[in-house]
Design a binder for these strands. Sequence first.
DNA 1: CAATACACAGAATACGTATGCAGACAGCGC
DNA 2: GCGCTGTCTGCATACGTATTCTGTGTATTG
Lengths: 344, 344
Amino acid sequence: MKSKNKPTSVDIAHLAGVSQPTVSRALRDSPLVSLETRRKVQKIARELNYKVDVNARNLRSQRTNTLALLLFEDSGENESFINPFFLSMLGSITRAAAQQGYDLLISFQQLSDDWNAEYEDANKADGIIFLGYGDYTSYIKRISKLDQEGAHFVTWGPVLKDQPGLFVGSDNELGGFLAADHLLKLGHTRIAFLGVESKDHPEFHDRHAGFIRAHQKHGIAIADELRFNAFFSEESGYTATQALIQSGHDFSAIACASDLMAIGAIKALREHGLRVPRDKAIVGFDDIPTAEHLAPSLSTIQQDTFAAGKALVDSVIHSINGDETKSFLLPTKLIVRDSCGAGI
Amino acid sequence: MKSKNKPTSVDIAHLAGVSQPTVSRALRDSPLVSLETRRKVQKIARELNYKVDVNARNLRSQRTNTLALLLFEDSGENESFINPFFLSMLGSITRAAAQQGYDLLISFQQLSDDWNAEYEDANKADGIIFLGYGDYTSYIKRISKLDQEGAHFVTWGPVLKDQPGLFVGSDNELGGFLAADHLLKLGHTRIAFLGVESKDHPEFHDRHAGFIRAHQKHGIAIADELRFNAFFSEESGYTATQALIQSGHDFSAIACASDLMAIGAIKALREHGLRVPRDKAIVGFDDIPTAEHLAPSLSTIQQDTFAAGKALVDSVIHSINGDETKSFLLPTKLIVRDSCGAGI
DNA sequence: CAATACACAGAATACGTATGCAGACAGCGC
DNA sequence: GCGCTGTCTGCATACGTATTCTGTGTATTG
């Protein structure tokens, strides 16, 4: 049924009247082979539609030219749902990897599971990119071991002091600052913050820290009673906003630690007869594709997924090559749309 | 700097006092090895954190246990933009592959380029899944060759008579029918259709065919002057809708061949002071995540990405295993939301 | 007791490539 | 004519695993 006669370098050697090593060298355009021989070999290879067997090549060279992308999901979530922000990241990472000549192996993992990072041990990939929100503390515990083993990997996430491994992330503190600063400039003084308070989620902590700094800059006291726990999901934002409303505390704006939360928040407000931005202003975080299409369109903090993908790929490749590497932050940017009422 | 002493099956053999082949067998729980020996070997392997070298394994077994996913992009598009529908597909394919014990290699390709499908030739993958919209005619030309070579692949797309290769796709005709039928039931008789008219885009053709069938069922004449060419993008939907409005033809509803188009259409209508759904009704196609968050929320034809991912993965695996395979369609479903005015 | 089956393990080998090393040959200087 | 350098090529081998085949010792059968 199938014609399975993949040509090998030996076949080509035979046809070209040279040895197999010469074929190997000629195909990689090695100057050790005369131009004439190279041309002849390459011509035959093309005619036979010869492709180097990557398994043999990898086995011999102990290098795979492949990166693995591990995307953690909240296990509680809807089975088929992935935060759109990560899908964007995935797109830019794929592109960046291709541009560097690396193949990309992708895998979704439940963070709760004993996730496997054996891509490098099994010589499936030269390095790993970790992506996803999750319990930072337990995550660090896992990657410490990887780090000690000398694995090559980079994590998308909070960049902190004394982390094991290599991190690339957005400047969450700046983002939190920009969001709050914007709302404060618009005259809001009672701003709610939606985001988990926990050492296990430093991204939230940093966003909140920026939130605080903006208040300090404006000389406005933080209303701690307006902070509500919420994770990244829409449901979570919805629930937290309900709690906020039912608390009876006065507030005029909500800073959400993710766009999905903001979607849930808007829904909850609307169900209580509150209009955005007339009654309450909203700012999100991430700038997912849906943000600009919401009604009202969502003002948010944009993370530069394009730069992020490139930075992650470059970092892990540097690590693989043994070059000097350093964790670093990417700037975040305020995108003003309608949900904050700036245009009114 | 790095501790690169990956243990091999030979090391384990040494430690266990057995031969390498015995280790190989023991680790795969072969009944050819006594239970006692198996346990001993497995214990040592665990202690050393041994992982089978996939390159060696693949080289030896001539099988990779990996699928390649090729996603075609419109080259004209914004560099970093991917239709959200395909991102959803990507998610479900990844999951389905994992469930079947396959790794997934992903790659984005410009359809215009001389895209490479050498994953199988190079023994990078056992089979390929093709995904993306594009010029069907030239696509078919390319895969015909693959098919003749006996490659293992499946394509997400229109399922037609006498296609080369294996296809899995949504029932576009049914989707088109459901969309138009719904609008007709709501009393609309002058319904515009946005979608390219071309043999190179059978998906559009099928959706339009269903559109026609619905009209026939209701005894309503098709208004051919209300058909406007548009591709999948938002810009395209926007432009087409402007043209529709400026044509001066009477219409009360638009059936869009993709949700992105619908987004563009709504934008164009709004700019002309036309309200959705009060003045014009809209139905989309795909049910991307943004659809439900639009204002008004978008009625649309849902493609079951979960089933699609599973079907694609299963199909290509069947093909790899030499099992009987057949192209087939997945049902589409009408999702009624606000944009069609059904609730008013 | 001889013959045979059986359960288990090792020896040998192949998968296809890349590379260290040695060899061949030409050109060149003296 | 000898040694030298430089250019090109081939030989031998290793990467780590899976499988075929062979061999051993024990249990079973007639």
